[in-house]
Amino acid sequence: MSDLKEELKSKIISVLNLEDVTTADIADADPLFGDGLGLDSIDALELIVLLDKDYGIKLTDPKQGKAIFESINTMAEYITANRTK
């Protein structure tokens, strides 16, 4: 699980072009949206693509994303439970 969390952090930084952020800057429980990393609605959609592309998980309802993308912890848990690749 901790490997997955590290992997997610570096993927998020690269996919969302967070130039000034390193994996050490993201704590597992930090909120990703709002005040946390300051991600927005387009980033959320891009994370949905990431789940599909890298883990074979299809989210069709963007509202589902809200809970899943709350933090690295919630993302890792959801991926572990639902991944198909």
């Binding site: 969302l16 387009i42 980033d43 959609l45 891009e46 693509v49 599909d52 592309k53």
Partner: peptide, 9 residues
Amino acid sequence: YYPSPAVFV
């Protein structure tokens, strides 16, 4: 086939 919303916009 993974259309990217961040590119599309």
